[in-house]
């Protein structure tokens, strides 16, 4: 990350002729080639998802057909109706939503507080805390599952939504990301607020956080993706059906030895539709947030 504050102010260059295609002139060969490559690439990336979505409307026999059909020839909702009959979709959707929203809010709050201290204060143990945080990004959850469960269980948080929300909230990636962003904030702004007599927490809340909006947005997106798709941890902690999230419920459904693949596919497709909708609605902000240099 280059310290962007030290960059000289950019000279606003007059529009160059590089973007010939948008300025009404005939697009160059290069531009056509580039657009073609990008579109073909995008089709390749999206195709498996579309195909899976279409396949969930195929009958079991058609799914097994050789060669495969591209789209369902006899369209059936059976996979959805039988799949969903055995499946309390609204409840799992609600649980997933509660966990995702609550965990994301908590993550944003505690991660940004920690990141602020690590970025803008000088205190004993700061570098050590940062180093530990960084190393923790490298610990895979799978390998410390049982010790974590022990802690959660001794706090009495198993089998509750709290046990799904709190333990994963202190994401090291979030602290890292926000700290890097806050390093680029001008100290002068904070100093000025201090001179105005604002309290430390108020400065954080009213001055620093609004300035960090792009980085917070990026972390929020990732937190939503992580928590929505979390599987391993909820599987162990959410024991009653009443607290299970969608991925867990799907795994339980698919884990029955006599369930056909067509139904598993249908339920899986249903589970990714909410995130995809949210993503498509927010994609403009997500992409621009990411690209605006929040991730550095």
């Amino acid at each position: 990350m280059t310290a962007r504050l030290e960059e000289p102010p950019r000279v606003v260059a007059p529009p160059t002729t590089r973007w010939a295609s948008t300025s009404g002139k005939t697009p160059s060969v290069g531009a056509i080639a580039r657009t073609t490559v990008l579109i073909v690439g995008a089709i390749i990336v999206v195709a498996p998802l579309v195909w899976a979505g279409l396949s969930s409307f195929k009958s079991q026999a058609e799914l097994a057909a050789q060669p495969p059909t591209l789209y369902p020839h006899d369209f059936t909702f059976d996979n959805y109706t039988t799949g969903l009959a055995a499946f309390d979709f609204p409840r799992y959707l609600l649980n997933s939503t509660i966990v995702t929203v609550a965990a994301t809010l908590l993550t944003l709050l505690i991660n940004s507080m920690a990141a602020y201290a690590l970025a803008k204060y000088n205190f004993r143990g700061r570098d050590l805390l940062f180093l530990i945080t960084l190393s923790a990004i490298m610990i895979p959850l799978q390998v410390i599952l049982l010790p974590i469960y022990q802690v959660v269980s001794s706090l009495g948080m198993t089998n509750s939504l709290l046990g799904l929300i709190i333990p994963p909230a202190a994401t090291p990636t979030g602290v890292f990301l926000l700290r890097q962003y806050m390093l680029t904030l001008p100290d002068e702004t904070i100093e000025a607020a201090r001179i105005d007599g604002a309290g430390e927490f108020r400065i954080f809340w009213q001055v620093v956080l609004p300035l960090c909006r792009p980085a917070l947005a990026v972390l929020a997106i990732f937190s939503v993706i992580w928590r929505w798709n979390d599987f391993l941890w909820p599987l162990i902690v959410a024991q009653d059906e009443s607290v299970q999230t969608l991925p867990v419920a799907i795994a339980r459904f698919a884990g029955q030895q006599a369930i056909p693949f067509s139904q598993i596919l249908a339920v899986s497709v249903m589970s990714i539709i909410p995130v995809i909708i949210v993503f498509l609605i927010l994609q403009r902000h997500i992409i621009s947030g990411l690209v605006k240099g929040a991730v550095k």
């Binding site: 995008a42 589970s271 993503f279 992409i287």
Partner: peptide, 12 residues
């Protein structure tokens, strides 16, 4: 958006 879409799909 198209290139980013797979990021949101659950690994399972």
């Amino acid at each position: 958006a198209a290139y980013f879409l797979p990021v949101v799909v659950s690994p399972v």
